[in-house]
């Protein structure tokens, strides 16, 4: 499958602090990739590097271009939504539509207006007068009306209530994603996006700690709910993480054969959030 993002050995430092440490990325066309990591892991720096807003060392190609050399050309093929605060507050809704229509060759005004007609956003209101949820809806309306290859979302629903968050992802999946476009999402609210994802990347302390297709997760990772009688046997198989679960223990394993695990208890596919915690704790334990 063709890659829309290819990165080799991306590095970035702020003073003595290594923000990105030899990151490799390969994001295929038509995928929905989740970039998951704790605060300060390097998610935003990675996403900014992809759209040319941050200088990094290493090889980087996005939609066939080096973002460091031609950001404005790249932005004809890539859209970006950061958290809800980035639309200019002094513009009116109709003015921002006018602006995007005038500067973006792939913007379809009728699509944006059709989307906005389904919301309560008044065309004449200033953006500073809109609620956080409405600002996100407006930004989504603008982005969905632009025909691009790649959409980069950095914590797009931060600070929104559950209704707006759910609507955001529903519209993204139903009205925008067509299997040919690519979406990269960075978020803390892992549970809300895990059903959308086709690729999962965990990043911690500037390093990729997991990069897997969602369809392959079940082949490599397993969670077993172990009875107390089998704990010694479960420990012997070297879990990457274990946690208490209603009087029993849930063990997470990486690369252990399913038939061995079935002897310990019920074998499940770990949720993305559980796997995230497991991988981060595993990494922390390795460093101790």
């Amino acid at each position: 499958m063709n890659a829309i993002v290819e990165a080799r050995a991306l590095r970035k430092t702020f003073g003595d602090f290594q923000v990105l440490n030899n990151i490799d990325l390969n994001i295929p066309l038509g995928s929905i990739t989740g970039l998951i990591g704790p605060n300060g892991a390097g998610k935003t720096t990675t996403l900014k590097a992809l759209i040319g807003l941050c200088d990094v060392d290493g090889e980087l190609t996005v939609a066939g271009r080096d973002p460091r050399e031609s950001r404005h050309k790249l932005m004809e093929d890539v859209c970006f939504i950061a958290d809800v605060g980035i639309l200019p507050k002094w513009l009116r809704v109709n003015q921002i539509i006018d602006y995007v229509e005038a500067v973006h060759p792939r913007f379809d005004r009728s699509k944006a207006e059709k989307f906005l007609a389904t919301t309560d956003i008044p065309a004449k209101k200033r953006i500073k007068e809109l609620s956080k949820g409405m600002v996100t809806q407006l930004h989504l309306a603008l982005v969905m009306a632009i025909d691009v290859k790649l959409l980069v979302l950095d914590e797009p629903t931060l600070g929104l209530d559950i209704i707006y968050r759910k609507e955001f992802y529903d519209r993204l999946l139903n009205d925008y994603f067509d299997g040919e476009r690519t979406i990269i999402i960075s978020t803390h609210q892992v549970e809300e996006i895990e059903t959308l994802l086709s690729q999962l990347i965990f990043i911690n302390r500037g390093e990729i700690v997991l990069d897997s297709q969602m369809s392959e997760l079940a082949d490599h990772y397993a969670e077993v709910v172990v009875d107390t009688a089998n704990l010694a046997q479960a420990d012997a198989l070297q879990p990457i993480h274990k946690r208490k679960l209603l009087g029993k223990y849930a063990y997470t394993y990486e690369g252990v054969a399913k038939d061995k695990l079935q002897e310990l208890g019920e074998v499940l596919v770990p949720s993305v959030s559980d796997l995230f915690v497991a991988k981060l704790k595993e990494e922390r334990n390795e460093q101790l």
Binding site: L53, M75, A82, L87, K89
Partner: peptide, 15 residues
């Protein structure tokens, strides 16, 4: 200062 630079920079307009 108000972070709207991220929006302006997300448009195909050069610096």
């Amino acid at each position: 200062r108000d972070t709207s630079v991220l929006f302006w920079q997300s448009m195909p307009v050069s610096n």
